[in-house]
Design a protein around this nucleic acid. Structure first.
Lengths: 185, 185
DNA sequence: AAAACATGTCTCAATATTGTGACATATTCA
DNA sequence: TGAATATGTCACAATATTGAGACATGTTTT
């Protein structure tokens, strides 16, 4: 048992729902190489599965993002690592971001969660502001657009990776180059 | 009757399915301000609706893209107009691109269709190659990545536009700047 | 206004999806 | 090995979605 069944189902669900939010649970089960019956043993219903996915995405993405932020004192390195973190999280990050947009993050969530989220968002803003003050990043671009672009490029990378699986490293390089040049002054 | 009901349903379906491919038809009907019964009068079943959406997306996107290509002899202008065309097509372009990826364009389609598509794809490649030869676009980037990025940025713009509806012109500017700098040598 | 057309309401059957019980088979672990 | 655990198979009811008929109500056209 390489990965626990429950986790495999969650990963599967994130992949499937990222592409097709209302996909039948059978698809999720198939994708996880599991019977639908087994899926239902772990998750009471669709809602519970989605909620679990959300939590899992939050935890993974936040962890990766916070690690990226803590990886250096250099804003530029931090930003690059944040992009890489997003790419490494793959569908997790894509779906997480989509859900946030769709729901307008209606979920008030726990204090800890929104604290973390604010920390990440504030860090992102701080990093961008710093790079703008240094003349590296274009002053005219809003942080909203930059964040949006960040998510868009991660998504492109996930897609590119799904079709063209061979050269993830090269694609990562392209992604960073496109991102940083795309927002450079 | 500003827009014909049938067209409104198609637009609605493209919007809805772009976000949630397996969404129930009731959502499409609601989004189009129409009864589900009316929707079924125009479309025999879900399949027919999706197929019609595909055709509509192909026609609009192709038209816009071909116009962009024909808008100038200058590759750079052509490329900018192709990005703008994608943005103007909005969900149409997003969904079209997603479907193509999902299906691996299994549909052999008509000759005319694949002719057009090849024409657009070849034009895109030619434009990129030209800009690369002129030292404007990075030589190392593959046309596949650049195409992928193009779609990703269009998608980001569509998303940005959904939340932040006020300043489409500014967002368009950001998009072009991010795109061209993102692939520049 | 009358005819023609478009849409809504209500209804219903067909189908698909969902969630679960009962029991058979693995698979893991002491 | 044998008990405990995990998963699969089959069956089934509950619910949701789909597609369409019959008829009422609007809306446009002549």
């Amino acid at each position: 048992m390489l990965i626990k069944t429950k986790d495999r189902i969650i990963e599967s669900a994130i992949e499937v729902f990222n592409q097709d939010f209302s996909a039948p649970l059978q698809k999720v089960a198939d994708n996880a190489n599991v019977t639908r019956r087994t899926l239902h043993r772990y998750f009471k219903d669709r809602d519970e599965l989605v909620t679990t996915c959300e939590r899992e995405m939050e935890i993974s993405c936040k962890k990766a993002m916070i690690a990226a932020i803590n990886s250096s004192d250099d804003s530029l390195v931090q930003l690059e690592n944040m992009l890489n973190a997003g790419i490494d999280c793959g569908a997790k990050y894509s779906f997480f971001y989509k859900l946030r947009q769709r729901e307008g993050h209606k979920h008030s969530k726990s204090n800890k969660d929104s604290e973390d989220y604010n920390y990440i968002y504030d860090s992102f803003k701080r990093i961008i502001a710093d790079l703008q003050s240094k003349g590296i990043v274009d002053n005219h671009m809003t942080v909203e657009w930059i964040q949006n672009l960040h998510a868009g490029i991660v998504n492109s990378t996930v897609n590119a990776n799904e079709t063209d699986n061979s050269k993830i490293k090269i694609i990562k390089k392209f992604a960073w180059k496109s991102f940083i040049n795309g927002i450079s002054a």
